[in-house]
Simulated scan of single mutants.
Amino acid sequence: MPPLPVFRTKADLRQQVTAWRQDGQKIALVPTMGALHAGHLDLIRIAQSKADRVIASIFVNPTQFAPHEDLDRYPRQEAADRDALSTAGCDGLYAPTTHVMYPAGFDTSITPGRVAERLEGAFRPHFFGGVATVVTKLFLQALPDVAVFGEKDWQQLQVIKRMVIDLDLGVDIVAAPTRREVDGLALSSRNAYLSDAERAAAPVLKQVLDDLALKVRDEPAQLAMHMEAGIKRILSAGFRAVDYLEVCHAETLSPWQAGDPARILVAAWLGQTRLIDNCGLD
């Protein structure tokens, strides 16, 4: 198998994309921050079903981390990631440096709208602006026809969908179902931070989501009571704090009203690790 092409600059990336386009090929992009797991490789496979060529990007984006967050210790393993992408049949890796992505004098950012205000937006107000800006730059650098994002980051997915529509970016956004461990824990690069005891407690998030989904369907009038019980259950399992557990409109992330498409989202702290998850009512 030939080595996976790695592009470090916008010029090299665009030269390859231009060549593929001249051959009439459709391009898919899978943006990641590296530390790839089976869930990321699912995104590659879905992208392969939507396009002729697939580029993965790896960039740990500093603008979506607050000063107190885990930018410096976020797992980085480019060699292993490159091998995994090559085995998965990816056609290229775009791995720019921070200087390439944010050169000297960079002074422009994108501010998402209402879909970014609540939940993650309330607890991490810097986050979605950083995501929106870097994703837009990746789209303009790679010029993909399709981009694939995981449903685990549900609010991020909705922010990106809204941004693509509002800014006429012309990229088809494809959602990939969340890959889970056998016990239900959503795969995440940050799971590597968990101790053995924390890892044993972590699946309660999915259990609470599933139970709450049933109760929202059967007893929507008792929603507040069921959410309170869910929070207590998460804390009693060993989590130290719950940032939110909410039922929201699936697309706008506004508070849910009976009859709306619904998504249940949760963020909670297990030791020093913040886990997020979500599910629909189906």
Results as ranks from 00 to 15, higher is better:
L212S: 01
I44A: 10
A47T: 08
A201L: 01
T18M: 10
R124A: 07
L41W: 12
A66C: 08
D145N: 14
A84F: 02
A258F: 14
Q25P: 01
A84H: 00
A200W: 04
R21L: 11
Q48K: 14
L270T: 12
D81Y: 02
V135M: 12
N191Q: 06
L85K: 08
P62R: 01
K161G: 07
V266E: 00
V208F: 02
T133G: 08
R233V: 10
R217S: 12
P144W: 09
C279T: 15
A79K: 13
R199P: 12
A56K: 01
L194W: 04
A132I: 06
R263S: 06
D166I: 11
L223D: 01
A192P: 02
L270N: 09
A200P: 08
V164T: 07
Y74P: 00
V6L: 12
T9F: 00
Y74H: 05
K161I: 13
A104C: 05
D23Q: 15
R53M: 12
E228M: 12
R179S: 15
D218Y: 02
I264V: 09
R124K: 14
R8A: 15
Q16A: 15
A201I: 05
G130A: 07
I160L: 13
E228T: 15
N191V: 03
G24L: 06
Q257V: 14
W154K: 05
E69S: 10
W269T: 07
